[in-house]
């Protein structure tokens, strides 16, 4: 359903600092896939997500969502199909607006923001019901400014906003990394719950290998801007953290060898 073909992204093209961040990514994401993405720093995980969301323009290749080729779409247009949750809890919500105003903006994702009332009375009931599902007591604080909430509460709200209108694909970029362990667990459970209930297609970047194995139905490992491992179903279930580490060191070793071959 989502097709990524020969995706290439180069930073600082033509300068001495040129970096090949993504060197020909090919990925077929099926409807309902919940894919966890792992890889070392600089492997291209966040770059891949940013290229999908449109905050980075791609150098070559194609991104298809459903029947649409979105490769050249600007970020705000892609937001009609793609929603995302950032690592920074402050990025996904607007602190100076109230909870209901944030939700009202999310409830209009991909539609015209015209001169009708920002928060409609009929929406408030829906917002209250959805907020109650988070179990954080936010349903009684519709008029509170989001800036008053904690990082965990903001991240939970961002998740709700990202799924209020069902996206074709949900991008999660280490969205629990900035939270304390207990809150991170809560947000993770909420993530699983929302994805399962709405049968969402999701991509989740994580640094936690156990998490990557526990969650989702498919796992990919990136290294040097390439997909070096793509397992799903039974293969993924059988995989252990040790197996993953072995894979990880294997490619790093190979990269090391090839570097040395170049130098010698």
């Amino acid at each position: 359903m989502i097709e990524i073909k020969d995706l290439v992204k180069i930073f600082h093209r033509g300068s001495v600092n040129e970096v090949l961040a993504l060197s020909g990514i090919n990925l077929d994401i099926r409807q309902g896939d919940f894919i966890t993405i792992i890889g070392s720093n600089g492997a291209g995980k966040s770059t891949l997500l940013n290229c999908l969301a449109g905050s980075l323009t791609i150098d070559s290749g194609h991104i298809r969502v459903g029947s649409e080729d979105v490769s050249r779409w600007p970020e705000h247009q892609r937001a009609t199909l793609i929603s995302r949750v950032f690592q920074d809890p402050l990025l996904g919500t607007c602190g100076s607006l109230s909870i209901e105003q944030n939700l009202a903006l999310a409830n209009r994702r991909g539609k015209v923001h015209g001169l009708g009332p920002g928060v409609k009375r009929s929406d408030q009931e829906l917002f209250r019901k959805q907020l109650a599902l988070l179990g954080l007591g936010l349903e009684n604080r519709l008029k509170d400014k989001v800036g008053l909430l904690s990082g965990g509460q903001r991240q939970a709200l961002t998740l709700l906003m990202a799924t209020l209108i069902k996206p074709q694909i949900l991008l999660l970029d280490e969205h629990t990394a900035a939270l304390d362990p207990k809150t991170a667990q809560q947000v993770l459970e909420l993530t699983q719950q929302l994805i399962a209930e709405q049968h969402l297609t999701a991509l989740m970047v994580t640094h936690n290998m156990r998490q990557a194995l526990q969650l989702g139905n498919r796992l990919i490992m990136l290294h040097g801007g390439r997909v070096i491992l793509d397992i799903s179903g039974k293969d993924k279930e059988k995989m252990t953290v040790e197996d993953l580490l072995e894979q990880f060191y294997k490619v790093r070793g190979e990269a090391f060898v090839s570097d040395r071959m170049l130098l010698v």
């Binding site: 970020e75 937001a79 929603s83 607007c94 100076s96 994702r109």
Partner: peptide, 18 residues
Amino acid sequence: LAMQATGANRQMITSQGV
């Protein structure tokens, strides 16, 4: 609301399709 969010958090409001 989109206007206020544009001033306060441009990434957020872009991600909401504005």
